[in-house]
């Protein structure tokens, strides 16, 4: 189980590296789709069908929007000469990545092994949840009953994002 997910996450890392280094922007977008659709398989393997059904639809819509934007504008990657600023950026990136890696090595010492530890709160959300909420699907019970405030905030964020998109795209520029 752990090995299967590891292999899929390895493919996701390869797709991510290709998406970052591709010369054509359209192929970079499609290689980003590799990461999203592999995530669906990972969600199915770790018994999360709700997440899988949401992720596969969201990834499709995201790809449609991104491809529409890319086909509408230029497809060439912005390559400049390798001057001092490019080397300085790459060096700073490597230093930041090394520091983060060292921090995660310390933080991972307190993590449980995969599939063995459970969160302390999980008993309260599983045992007796069907009697409390009446919902057979436990995830729906958590979303709309135990954690209704979160869903209300999420709906507000969605409305705000749509307002932002309409404000950015529908106003006339200063002529």
């Amino acid at each position: 189980m752990e090995l299967t997910i590891s292999v899929i996450v390895g493919f996701m890392i390869l797709g991510a590296i290709y998406a970052i280094h591709a010369r054509d922007i359209l192929s970079a977008v499609i290689a980003g789709g590799i990461v999203g659709y592999s995530l669906v398989i990972c969600f199915l393997l770790i018994k999360a069908p709700d997440l899988a059904i949401v992720q596969i639809v969201v990834e499709t819509i995201t790809l449609i929007i991104m491809i529409a934007v890319v086909l509408d504008s230029s497809r060439t990657e912005a390559y400049g000469r390798f001057d001092g600023q490019a080397y300085a950026t790459a060096g700073a990136a490597l230093v930041i990545l090394l520091i983060l890696f060292w921090l995660f090595r310390h933080a991972s010492a307190s993590l449980d092994h995969f599939g063995e530890g459970t969160l302390r709160m999980s008993d309260a959300y599983i045992n007796g949840a069907v009697e409390k909420t009446g919902s057979v699907n436990l995830v729906t019970g958590v979303i709309f009953d135990f954690r209704g405030y979160d869903t209300l905030g999420e709906a507000t964020v969605l409305v705000t994002a749509v307002l932002g998109v309409l404000t950015i795209l529908r106003i006339r520029g200063r002529k």
Partner: peptide
């Protein structure tokens, strides 16, 4: 949404 996988979020996007 309260019986099978899915719900408001997935169905709305579909």
């Amino acid at each position: 949404g309260h019986l099978t996988p899915g719900g408001g979020f997935a169905g709305g996007i579909i």
